[in-house]
C-alpha cells in the first residue's frame, strides 16, 4: 500500500482513521485513512463493490462505522449530526425524489427543510440545466433528468461539502461531459469541496485534483494524479494510459488477495 503524505493535514475537510465497516462476516471497508483537502475535487475510485458507497454512507450518518472514526470539518457523529448534514449536499447511488411531485416541488421540499430562500431552487435548477422541465412530474423524467434532479438536490443552497456517488451514471455522453465540467468548476465557483466517486479512472482524471483508489475495501493509493503517474513509473505499471495503470493495480491487488486466502 502506498499513501503519499498530504502537505497540509490541517486543511483537510474530511479525515478518516482506520475507518472500517463490516456487514456480518464481510468487510466492506477496511482500515481506511483518507485525507480530503478543503477546496479540492477528490476522486474516489474503485471497481463495483469496492466500498465507495459504504464509505460515503458513513460520512452521511446512514450507516455506523464498525471500527475507526472520522471527522468532517472537525465534527463527528452522532453529536454534530445536524451540523454536518446542514453543510453537506449529497447524492448517493441513485437519484432520490418524490415521483408524484414536479422537479421544482421536489427541490422546494428540501429547500424548506434547509431553511433556504426561494431563489435557491431556481439557482439549483439552472446549474444542472433542468429549468425547462421544472414543472414536469419527477416520475416522468428520463433517467438523465432524474440524475440531474438528484444533483440539483445536492447543490441546493451551495453547501461547503458535496458528496457525489457516481453522479454520471445513466447520463448520455453530452450529459456526462456537462456534469464533469460542472463538478470541476464547483470549487472555483463557490468555494466548496467535492468528494466524487467513480469506477472509471478516465472520468476521475478529468475532474479530480486528488484521487483515492479503493479495492475490496482497502485503499491502494492516495495522492495527486502526478503522484499516481510517478508511482506507475516506479512500480512498472503501464504509464501511457492511466486507466491501464488503474487496472494493473487492481489486478495485482486481486492476485495478492487470492494468495492470502
Amino acid at each position: 500500500m502506498t499513501i503519499s503524505k498530504m502537505n497540509h493535514p490541517k486543511a483537510n475537510i474530511i479525515e478518516t482513521h482506520e475507518l472500517t465497516k463490516v456487514y456480518g462476516n464481510f468487510t466492506a471497508v477496511s482500515h481506511l485513512n483518507l485525507h480530503i483537502r478543503k477546496g479540492s475535487v477528490y476522486g474516489f475510485l474503485g471497481p463495483n463493490g469496492a466500498g465507495k458507497s459504504t464509505t460515503m454512507k458513513m460520512f452521511l450518518g446512514l450507516t455506523r462505522p464498525t471500527e475507526g472514526y472520522f471527522f468532517i470539518d472537525g465534527k463527528t457523529y452522532p453529536a454534530d449530526r445536524m451540523e454536518i448534514l446542514r453543510n453537506t449536499g449529497s447524492f448517493i447511488e441513485s437519484p432520490a425524489y418524490y415521483g408524484n411531485l414536479t422537479g421544482e416541488e421536489n427541490l422546494d421540499i428540501i429547500r424548506r427543510i434547509l431553511g433556504l430562500p426561494r431563489s435557491a431552487v431556481d439557482d439549483a435548477l439552472e446549474i444542472v440545466g433542468l429549468t425547462q422541465f421544472r414543472r414536469r412530474q419527477a416520475r416522468k423524467y428520463s433517467l438523465g433528468m432524474k440524475q440531474r434532479l438528484g444533483l440539483a438536490e445536492a447543490l441546493l443552497g451551495r453547501p461547503p461539502l458535496l458528496i457525489l456517488d457516481e453522479p454520471t451514471n445513466g447520463l448520455d455522453p453530452v450529459g456526462i461531459h456537462e456534469i464533469r465540467t460542472l463538478i470541476k468548476s464547483l470549487p472555483r465557483q463557490y468555494d466548496c469541496t467535492v468528494l466524487v466517486s467513480s469506477h472509471l479512472l478516465s472520468e476521475v482524471e478529468l475532474m479530480a485534483d486528488d484521487i483515492g483508489i479503493l479495492n475490496h475495501g482497502r485503499l491502494l493509493f492516495e495522492g495527486t494524479l502526478a503522484g499516481l503517474r510517478d508511482l506507475a513509473r516506479r512500480s512498472g505499471y503501464p504509464t501511457d494510459n492511466l486507466e491501464e495503470t488503474f487496472l494493473a493495480m487492481i489486478d495485482e491487488d486481486n492476485q495478492k488477495g487470492r494468495l492470502n486466502r
Binding site: 451540523e83 448534514l85 448517493i92 441513485s94 425524489y97 434547509l114
Partner: peptide, 13 residues
C-alpha cells in the same frame, strides 16, 4: 417509491 427516504435521512431533520 423514489428513494426520497434516504434523502430525508441525509438532511438536517
Amino acid at each position: 417509491a423514489g428513494g426520497a427516504m434516504q434523502k430525508m435521512d441525509t438532511l438536517p431533520l
